[in-house]
Amino acid sequence: MAQEEQSGRSIFTDLDDGSTNEQVDKWQRTARLWKETLIEQWKMLTDELSVKLSLFVVAAFVLIAIFAPLIAPYPPLQRQYQGDAGILIEKWADPSLLGADNGYLLGTTAEGFDIFSQLVYGTRAALMVGLIAAVFTAGIGTLVGLVAGYYGGKVDDALMRVVDFLYGMPLLPTVIVLVAVLGPNLWNIILALIILQWRSTARVIRSQALSLRERPFVKAAEVAGASDWHIISRHLAPNVLPMTFLYGSFGIAWAILAEAGVSFIGLGDPNTVSWGTMLQASRAYSALQFGAWWWFVPPGICIGLLVISGFLIGRGYEEITNPKLQ
């Protein structure tokens, strides 16, 4: 109808019936959009020295966690015995680092476990809790925030009501209660952290989405007939990505701290060694009174290093996302 009459005047007239296969190109371009966004973020992030150092620390811990069985001389929960007879447990051994001639780099615990091996394996627990909790909190928070912010109205009200409810609960006490109810194991700690942590990401991403959806480039996509999912994934998500990463890296730090806290008061996973359970055991056996500082100082330092790294990376992101801070 109207189309035919006008097509004579269209500048595209001679292009209409060619059909090359450009599907592949389309996917390549979407992939590139994401790749370039990520590379750009990465470059901005690694501009800062403190961020570089932090990333280096995290990378070192990741390597230790991956190669733990090669680095640690013993399994973390294998009793060490004096001599070959296997009768007397080698407990409270001094660290060979301080000159003792026993091959236990950081000595042994009151139960006869090799502290160095425990420290190495503890990296796994810390990173697992930190990374899994962070990925899920940032992921869920971003998705919820985008949906709430983009759709607004009732969807927004409902989702934000849930967030408000979660905000009413203090982090550590609630995680402790949840773990006490669900049972002390690493997965329940992670689950409890995820349940409580996505709230802050969701709230921030929502407010960003609220302002993004009013921007003309989103309106232009709507005018062109883009679906809601298209707009959320192509126009909103890439523009809130720095915020997601920011909350993700803070999330790592919080999760590691919380796991240590929960384990320290005795609700840690008894079958897994984490830095928190190491601290808890050292306290239970009064390592401080015996002067065995090599039992609790190393895990404390490791927790501190990883947590500080997480916060520094987050700070770096804060400066990217909010240039006024600089």
């Binding site: 090359t20 450009e22 371009r29 959009l33 480039f217 232009a220 062109a224 890439p238 523009n239």
Partner: peptide, 29 residues
């Protein structure tokens, strides 16, 4: 300054409506 997505190239911005409506000959158009 607000009407183009800062994360999309000129090509992707202009091609987007064609993709939404599944129109061929993207590059030429």
């Amino acid at each position: 300054f607000e009407s183009l997505n800062p994360r999309m190239t000129v090509y992707d911005t202009v091609a987007e409506p064609l993709r939404i409506h599944d129109i061929r000959n993207e590059t030429a158009r």
